[in-house]
């Protein structure tokens, strides 16, 4: 209390070490999208929605890169890794987007993974009812997490809790998933109690956000699948493969 330096459980420090270099990810995805658009003929340019899909696809690549180089996950066999990622890819995308807005903290604008800002009202004016509903659910979650003062240490813990889901069946190494869940929950509780002693229910409130992230991500998948059936989503990419994986 009284300005003591923040204390991080050792495991939280280890999780932070797995975080990607944000500016590098930003530059990589922005460059990719610019090249992708420039390489297309005048009449094949991607529209806004198509660019957003490509951006989500590239963000998925960076999420897979983060996972496979992360503590615990890198110990798993590929089949287990695939099952875990196929289960939670849309939640990790949702959590990534929501956390970026929590940190961005600029009412009325959305910060993209490329570092660009988009006017929220502009998107809302172009989007249909379903996408608007989805965006407003995400923004409600952003507000809740902002008032909870979610920080990066807690964010990385939530990412691992989402990745190592106990809902995934037929894993060869389910024991590791259980152990990671236990360790991360303990580390998160320890961190929150030490660094936010005045927010006695913060740990519980953070965990209560996980089903909300799941609900938003499933709504996003439904929307994306509907748009895919309409032929509005660029195909032959990781995003489409993951979308189909759960339906297979």
């Amino acid at each position: 209390a009284g300005g003591s330096p923040p204390t991080f459980p050792h495991l939280v420090v280890e999780l932070l070490k797995c975080e990607p270099d944000e500016p590098q990810v930003q530059a990589k995805i922005l460059t990719y999208l610019q090249q992708e658009q420039a390489s297309r003929g005048k009449h094949e340019k991607l529209n806004t929605f198509g660019l957003m899909c490509k951006m989500a696809d590239q963000t998925l690549f960076s999420i897979v890169e983060w996972a496979r180089s992360s503590i615990f996950f890198r110990e798993l066999k590929v089949d287990d890794q695939m099952k875990l990622l196929q289960n939670c890819w849309s939640e990790l995308l949702t959590l990534d987007h929501v956390f970026r807005q929590v940190m961005h903290a600029k009412e009325g604008s959305i910060l993209l993974v490329t570092g660009q800002q988009v006017d929220y009202a502009l998107i809302a004016s172009q989007a249909g009812a379903t996408l608007n509903n989805l965006l407003s659910h995400a923004q409600e979650l952003v507000s809740k997490l902002r008032s909870l003062q979610l920080d990066q240490r807690e964010f990385v813990c939530l990412k691992f809790l989402v990745l190592f889901s106990l809902d995934v069946k037929n894993l060869e190494n389910f024991h590791l998933v259980e152990s990671v869940q236990e360790q991360i929950n303990a580390a998160l509780l320890d961190y929150v109690m030490c660094n936010y002693p005045q927010q006695t229910d913060k740990f519980g409130q953070l965990l209560l956000r996980l089903p909300e992230i799941r609900a938003i991500s499933l709504q996003a998948e439904e929307y994306l699948y509907y748009k895919h059936l309409n032929g509005d989503v660029p195909c032959n990419n990781l995003l489409i493969e993951m979308l189909h994986a759960k339906r297979a």
Binding site: V64, Q81, M82, N237, E241
Partner: peptide, 18 residues
């Protein structure tokens, strides 16, 4: 018909620095 190779599997099996 051979199944389309999984992009996710390729990514997970790729060498670390690729």
């Amino acid at each position: 018909e051979p199944e389309e190779p999984s992009l996710l599997k390729k990514l997970l099996l790729a060498p670390a620095n690729s």
